[in-house]
Simulated scan of single mutants.
Amino acid sequence: MIKIVGVRFKKTGKVYYFDPGDLTIALHDRVIVETARGIEFGEVVIAPRDVAEEDVVSTLKKVLRLATEEDAHKVEENQVKEKYAFEVCQKKITQHRLPMKLVDVEYTFDASKIIFYFTADGRVDFRELVKDLAAIFRTRIELRQIGVRDEAKMIGGLGSCGRVLCCASFLGDFEPVSIRMAKDQNLSLNPTKISGICGRLMCCLKFENDCYERKEHCRRRERSDANTIPAEMIEGPS
């Protein structure tokens, strides 16, 4: 068995697993961990637990330490820097007349990299933009193109139900949603009624889909049983 702990870096982001080592870690503790993109600050959303070795896909990185108030203050400072970086990047995009929409900016915890998230209809040549940003901020710059569902998750908003978007409030990962789900639930196939503000099929179509699938399976089994002729009716009495 291997001990793991689940850490989330954003409010509704994906949960990543780490090795807690000998540290005493509890649910909702804030920790400092090493990730593929550097040192990061996150919150424990799955308390330490033992899992089978075969359930661990790759080697787990260790939790470096519990976060301090100084670390939390540094995160707040980075958030202020992100707002400034957003304004600067937006001006540069306008100057270069690039066909892209800036969605969000994120500093890594150690400020070794700034990630600019954007949407665009196609590929964008942003090499000159990267040069300008690198000259201004003097750190590593990454421009990452995202989809419309990720944009809705980052920006947030209200769905047609009047509630905060599922993706922005509790959904960690996007699951595949198909028009078949709407048909099985006898919903209107009008795109404006089954699409979210992102323009894609609403994520909530997936929530009750399993129930409808089980219900349809039971109906098919009942029809199959009704059409089956008992063996004694075919063979006759013995």
Rank of each mutant, 00 (worst) to 15 (best):
P20V: 02
D125E: 15
N186M: 07
R163C: 07
Y84P: 01
I146H: 03
R140E: 06
I32Y: 03
V56H: 05
L102C: 08
R180T: 13
M100D: 06
K62E: 05
P230F: 11
T59M: 05
L158E: 03
G172C: 13
S58E: 12
G196V: 04
T12C: 08
G159M: 04
E40W: 03
L165S: 01
I234V: 15
E82W: 02
C211T: 15
K62P: 07
A226E: 15
R149E: 10
G21M: 11
C166Y: 01
Q95G: 06
P191K: 14
N190H: 14
G162A: 02
T139N: 05
I39W: 01
L165M: 13
S169A: 06
A226G: 12
N186H: 15
G6Y: 04
L66T: 01
Q95Y: 13
T119C: 10
S112P: 08
R37V: 11
T94P: 04
I234A: 09
A134K: 10
I115P: 03
T119M: 09
D22V: 11
D210M: 09
H73V: 07
I197V: 15
E82T: 05
I234F: 10
C204I: 09
I4Y: 09
K83Y: 04
V88R: 04
R8F: 01
N209V: 08
V105W: 00
T228K: 10
E216A: 15
D150P: 08
